[in-house]
């Protein structure tokens, strides 16, 4: 019996219109056989988490290139906890300096991918981590 494909929400938050990276990642995940929901621009953390819950998503990938990552990533983590969705694998990327990436990972973001990260590395991460989540949650 074939398993239902992994389902991933790719999101853009705040006022940041740089959507090149988000779209490329969305395509790459889709090409790797996953179902991808792209939220479009200007979403609030609340909307992003709601979308993920409604779509029964295994993971959320958030892309931020505006410098607002230290505000918006923690807000999504907060929303995941508040809506009892902490099992959804939350990862992200963008122009994020290394020490901020470290801080975000400690705050509950599972991985941060910065410019130049190979697509395959991201695809592998999502398949591995969201696959584990699927096994646990079913």
């Amino acid at each position: 019996m074939a398993a239902r494909p992994l389902r991933i929400v790719i999101a853009k938050a705040g006022l940041d219109g740089h959507d090149r990276g988000a779209k490329v990642i969305a395509r790459a995940l889709r090409d790797a056989g996953m179902e991808v929901i792209y939220t479009g621009l200007f979403q609030t953390p609340e909307q992003i988490v709601q979308t993920a819950i409604q779509e029964d998503a295994d993971g959320i990938g958030l892309s931020i290139l505006s410098g607002a990552h230290m505000t918006l990533f923690p807000l999504v983590v907060e929303q995941l906890a508040a809506q009892d969705a902490g099992d959804i694998v939350f990862f992200g990327g963008g122009t994020i300096p290394p020490e901020d990436a470290g801080a975000l990972k400690s705050a509950g973001v599972r991985a941060i991918f910065t410019p130049g990260a190979p697509l395959q590395e991201i695809v592998d991460f999502v398949q591995r981590e969201c696959g584990k989540r699927r096994e646990l949650v079913g």
């Binding site: 006022l15 200007f42 410098g67 607002a68």
Partner: peptide, 22 residues
């Protein structure tokens, strides 16, 4: 910055985390 570019004042809810960044 992004709020200015998108037509929001710095104290608007949409501006959180973005003021003076870009």
């Amino acid at each position: 910055d992004m709020p200015t570019l998108m037509g929001y004042d710095s104290d608007a809810p949409q501006a959180r985390g973005e003021v003076g960044k870009c």
